[in-house]
Amino acid sequence: MCVKVACVGGGPAGLYLSILLKLRNPSHDITVHERDPEGSTYGWGVTYWRGLLDRLHAHDPESARAVEANSVRWSEGVAHVRDLTTRRPGDEGHGIGRHRLLEILAERARSLGVRLEFEHGITPDDLPDADLIVAADGVHSALRTRHADHFGTAIGTGRNRYLWLGTSKVFEAFTFAFVETGHGWIWCYGYGFGPESSTCVVECAPETWTGLGLDTANEADGLALLEKLFADILDGHPLIGRPSAQWLTFRTLTNRTWHRGNLVLIGDAAHTTHYSVGAGTTLALEDAIALAGALHEQPALPQALDRYERQRRRALLSVQSAARLSARWYENLPRYIDLPPQQMFALLGQRHSPLLPHVPPRLYYRLDRAAGRLETTRRLKRRLGPKLARTMQARASRP
């Protein structure tokens, strides 16, 4: 059955959904409406992990190959604490420029016959005539806000302040830097997303933000101060802001339901997770995969939207829990920062554990190490057990 779909918002979620729907049925009439000019976007680079790339290859190999070819990779993390540095191996991570990701998805959508209408804002009072309207218009979604009571929208605000920046310093690993000041700690997360650029997210407690004067500094003075604080990892490279960049507190958004009639929420319009878990783009693309699948498998729209919402809610539970715990770990940084750097970095990797906030950090580290050794022993026994049993049996059968 041919359907008419209007995606409001030209971010990763709306574009990838349009691609998947066209691949399912080329006769679908699909338009993506984006209020901003083509090529303009916020942010710097986005992160994702191997699991997402595998799913992209399964659903559209052509766009997946382009995304992978334009991504950088890392397989370890580096933490700088005061004048000490420690490294830990990790899962393979990927970074790609948000601008390049949107270019790839837009080119692919156009090639399949999707109409892309830039500089075309959609308001709740001027909705397109369509069988399905997809609200992919972000955390500040106007379409969702009009019916906030129906959706049960709730927004929680984090305590810490953060600023999203770029830099010409190319980080070869996912990099953390924690700097002690006379007003408390300030830290950054740095990761590459191209051959000449990295993202650098700076975060601190509100007392540090005001104590350092970052609340009143103009853009140039603020960047100069941050470059001085993080000089050891920037190696002389500048930090780069945007004209509209500002210090924010993170907004965690949830909704009681994700659809109303023929209007459905996707991506940040439906949910947000703290940036420290690096899942925003992944979740948006996975929403698109789930919605496209539900629309294909359920011919009736209400049942399809119900199925999409149930599936994604279940998938989000663990990610949202991890994001809340991750944000809390950074808000409680003084609890961990005086540990030896190797231990602190290990607990940074364990920040998603619901037990960590309730167990003394040094004790938790020892217990985690002991559990790791026990699990290693168990894996070794599982691998060598059958071979050892055959050897013992052979010896016993000898005359």
Rank of each mutant, 00 (worst) to 15 (best):
M1P: 11
K4Y: 03
G10W: 07
G10Y: 04
G10I: 07
G14I: 08
L20N: 03
L23G: 04
D29I: 11
T31A: 06
P37L: 06
P37F: 01
G39Y: 00
G43A: 06
V46Y: 03
V46D: 02
D54P: 03
R55H: 09
A58K: 13
D60G: 06
E62T: 10
S71M: 10
W74R: 07
V78N: 05
P89D: 11
H99M: 05
L102R: 06
L105P: 00
L105A: 02
A106M: 03
R108E: 01
G121K: 07
D126W: 00
A136T: 08
V139R: 13
S141K: 12
L143R: 08
T145S: 15
T145R: 15
F151H: 07
G152W: 11
T153C: 09
I155R: 13
G156N: 14
Y162E: 09
L163H: 12
W164V: 10
G166L: 05
K169S: 06
K169T: 04
K169I: 00
A173S: 15
F174R: 06
H183L: 04
Y191N: 08
S197P: 00
T199P: 06
C204E: 05
A205V: 03
W209M: 04
G213C: 06
L225R: 15
L234N: 08
G236C: 08
H237L: 01
P243W: 05
R251Q: 15
L253I: 15
N255S: 14
N255Q: 10
R256P: 02
T257H: 10
H259T: 08
V264Q: 12
A270D: 05
H271L: 09
T281E: 01
A290L: 05
L295D: 08
D306P: 02
A315S: 13
A315P: 04
Q342V: 11
L356M: 09
P360Q: 08
L363I: 14
Y365F: 15
L367P: 03
D368I: 00
R379C: 00
L380T: 14
R382W: 11
P399K: 04
